[in-house]
């Protein structure tokens, strides 16, 4: 198994209708700063590379960068933190979004049942809560709707603490998109969209990791 970089993962998934933020891949601190100025602050900066699967654990994500100087400094530090094993790296600059609702969506390969699509409640407690629903790829829109209904905490999709209800059709499109990319690219062993944030009612995947059979 090998993993694709976050940028390459997103480039593979976006044409299938998986919604991502408008973000830039930058090779230097200068180009990162220019990207931040263009996107508007605050922004997030992350180190990007094929061999970098678990950025958070390694401290390779910088959140809430509020101006050009702090972004430039963060980009410098991230590029310096790269090790030779990381291979070719760059810095991803993305608008900072926040949400009180997080989901996890993904694809994995089951030894008995083959390619599966998963929707779950996300966040740091995701694995403990384990409120997930799974279907076998390919899935239909109807399957995706029933995945959403099956969540024990499907109430999270309604209007919630001042936030609007989740656009169900957009979430359905995301799940069907994941299914179609997995079917179209049989080398894909797993996809993680973790987290998928709900921003103004719309799901947006702020991180992506694609694992392919070597």
């Amino acid at each position: 198994m090998t993993t694709l970089s976050e940028a390459a993962s997103k480039a593979l998934l976006a044409p299938h209708g998986v919604p991502f933020l408008d973000e830039r891949t930058c090779d230097t601190a200068d180009s990162a700063a220019a990207a931040g100025d263009e996107l508007g602050y605050p922004v997030v900066a992350k180190l990007n590379g094929d061999a970098i699967a678990h950025k958070t654990e390694r401290g390779l994500v910088r959140l809430g960068l509020s101006d050009t100087d702090s972004l430039r400094r963060a980009a410098d530090e991230l590029l310096e933190a790269a090790t030779p094993e990381d291979g070719e790296v760059s810095v991803l600059v993305a608008p900072m979004v926040s949400s009180n609702r997080e989901f996890i969506c993904g694809v994995s390969t089951d030894p008995q049942f083959g390619t599966t699509v998963l929707l779950g409640v996300g966040g740091i407690l995701a694995e403990a809560i384990a409120d997930v629903s799974i279907r076998l790829a390919p899935i239909t829109e109807r399957d995706a709707h029933s995945m959403i209904d099956e969540l024990r905490t499907s109430d999270l999709l309604g209007a919630f603490r001042g936030s609007p209800a989740v656009d169900r059709d957009a979430l359905v499109a995301l799940l069907v998109g994941l299914s179609s990319v997995a079917v179209a690219e049989p080398d894909i062993a797993a996809i993680d969209l973790n987290p998928v944030l709900i921003v103004d009612g719309k799901p947006i995947a702020v991180d992506a990791l694609v694992e392919v059979a070597a």
Binding site: T3, A53, G106, T109, L118, A190, E211
Partner: peptide, 11 residues
């Protein structure tokens, strides 16, 4: 499993 999805997708 390497992926979170994989570890949530129990048999």
């Amino acid at each position: 499993a390497a992926s979170h999805t994989g570890s949530l997708a129990s048999d």
